[in-house]
Design a protein around this nucleic acid. Sequence first.
DNA 1: AATGAATGAGAATTCATTCAT
DNA 2: GATGAATGAATTCTCATTCAT
Lengths: 215, 215, 215, 215
Amino acid sequence: MVDTVRSTFLNLPEAKQEKILDAALAEFADKSYEQASVNVMVSACGIAKGSLYQYFKDKKGIFLYVFDLAVSRVRRTLVKVKEETAGEEFFTRLEKSLLAGVDFIRRHPRIYNLYLKILFDQRVPERERLLTAVRRFAADYLGSLVRQGVARGEIRADLPEHTVIFLLDALFDRFLQATCVPAFDVTLNLEKADEREIRERIGELVGILRSGLAA
Amino acid sequence: MVDTVRSTFLNLPEAKQEKILDAALAEFADKSYEQASVNVMVSACGIAKGSLYQYFKDKKGIFLYVFDLAVSRVRRTLVKVKEETAGEEFFTRLEKSLLAGVDFIRRHPRIYNLYLKILFDQRVPERERLLTAVRRFAADYLGSLVRQGVARGEIRADLPEHTVIFLLDALFDRFLQATCVPAFDVTLNLEKADEREIRERIGELVGILRSGLAA
Amino acid sequence: MVDTVRSTFLNLPEAKQEKILDAALAEFADKSYEQASVNVMVSACGIAKGSLYQYFKDKKGIFLYVFDLAVSRVRRTLVKVKEETAGEEFFTRLEKSLLAGVDFIRRHPRIYNLYLKILFDQRVPERERLLTAVRRFAADYLGSLVRQGVARGEIRADLPEHTVIFLLDALFDRFLQATCVPAFDVTLNLEKADEREIRERIGELVGILRSGLAA
Amino acid sequence: MVDTVRSTFLNLPEAKQEKILDAALAEFADKSYEQASVNVMVSACGIAKGSLYQYFKDKKGIFLYVFDLAVSRVRRTLVKVKEETAGEEFFTRLEKSLLAGVDFIRRHPRIYNLYLKILFDQRVPERERLLTAVRRFAADYLGSLVRQGVARGEIRADLPEHTVIFLLDALFDRFLQATCVPAFDVTLNLEKADEREIRERIGELVGILRSGLAA
DNA sequence: AATGAATGAGAATTCATTCAT
DNA sequence: GATGAATGAATTCTCATTCAT
């Protein structure tokens, strides 16, 4: 995190910062890391190429900064959901989390694309660190939901916690992918589904989970 | 499929074909499509640059040929599993399919990487066509298992078929990813698991599914 | 002329020879000499690349053979016109020659294109020799017409012969170019003219020449 | 004209601009458009390959810029002749124009070669547009001379204007070609003629024209 | 006589990064 | 602090010619 951004950037008026970050996010979300072009970024946001190199050490620095920013937004969103549903039943919280997830990536598709990049594009700088951090956050999030559910007796206590989390995480992730990766989902057609359909599908899926997991 | 490969290539001795396809697969599995380098391929397999262009129309042609080859191998493997377990119970077949999948990608990690590429790398040539084909195959495979399971009374008949397939597919896919994408799985540590552990985890997951789905 | 074609070629059945020459002429007429592609020729006429190199020493050999063939066709055509109009008046012969020229290049545009190539494309092999030969033929042709015209008292005898030939040649050549080089002629629009219009324009031009040259 | 050159180039010191344009003009005049090599240009003028691509979008851009520059120089030269001879007799102006033309292409042979390129090299970018522009300029130039000559009673009024222009243009063009295209002119040997001889030949030709055209 | 696989130099273009102004 | 010109190695793809079969 150190060395990725320079004070020159942080001293910039916020509007300018935003313009630059927008251009960078757009480019990184659109192409693979190596294919993303600094040239395109600078001409998209109308600054000189040299300037960008005064704000960030190099391309890698730009990427890391943009990525960290994106992650913290995701984090904030999900944590809010967790807090707002603190008292509710486990399966309800699951549904609401899923819905919030879909909502988020529909509003910020480029951030979600960034995440997909590091999932499967080796050669993203510090991929391992970034990926582990994100994955860990997801696991922790679901883990805390599950533990609370078990404590309240809403979930069977005899199941290995890790396996339950794995299953939930798999479903969660895939559901989001299905709603936004083109040509990916050939069974539920989530990509073109409106909110009502999304809710229905979530209901069905959580229904099955309930049969499998509920105490 | 037409126009991707030239007869020049097919007339080559098999050993040479293999050497070339190996180099190409390695490169495409390693980098994003655009980043994959024809230069690297030719020096990896020790042929002249011009020669590769006698075998294939262009980079895209190489990719499509390699990809189609890879898909047909996967297909063959899974179809064999289906046939060999034709008489068995649904959840057993599921376990065996998963196991066969893990086994396949452990023996052919680069093929699996190729699949991951087209999942999330826009800019892969004919991505939509390729992806849809693969996804559809997976859905059909699981679909036929499910329908037979329902017919035999092993699975609840009241669940929407598509949703069940979606769930199984999600789990299937994620399980494979967890076993071979580095730094991806932070809950079950499948990447480093030996076969015994894999079997155990599969057992646990299918156990949960059984509770949710069994009639 | 030696060394351009090999006996292997001349022993070929005529139909095959023709097919090959056709493909070569088409390619050389279409592109600059260096840009013309042996690959394109062989795939256009359906023979192996190696075969072409058994018929001709190299690309240059193909070109020279095709060119010589083309020139002899032109020569034959014009000589026939000269013979058939042997007894007629100078300006009539001029008109008929022009008409025959237009007719020839409309029927054999690729041959005319070949000629244009060597006119202005440096880097055509043996360009100087080929061009001089063609130019000399044209000058001789017009020269013999002029001398006969002078002898018969149809043309002023006080004019320098070379200058007269130069003028006629210029007009002749330009007229042909105007009828077949796209976008070249912006005054008479000869490119799109039908035969009647061509005759009219020829009549007008020769009319002016008559005023300037007639005795 | 737009998009061919970049401000980067125009901001360069004039000497450097000239060096680059010189190298480009030399290359384009020497070879066919497709055969002309950007590599050769950059090593001829001692800049990096990447730099040239900062100055121009692509090879086509370089060509168009060089061509437009060349055309405007020709235009300027001829317009000056027209103005300087405004009051003089038609046939005198014709002679002076021809002389100025010969003088120009002897001082700028590469510019004239560029013109010849687009005349007969299909495959030059925007050939039609460029060629039409040049041809139209020539026709307009001669047309204005002719119309003034007719108005002053120096030229027969009964001749179709277009045909007269066509004839003059043909002669004009061919005369210039004869003086600078190697091996082209086999009758007057203009290529090796000194200025005195050129003047004589021009005199003779215009003499004939006078007989044909003068009122 | 015919084939067609092999070659490697050369083509145009893009790129992240540096540095003098 | 901001600029943008300069770089040269990298990219994909084409080509005429050779030669063993």
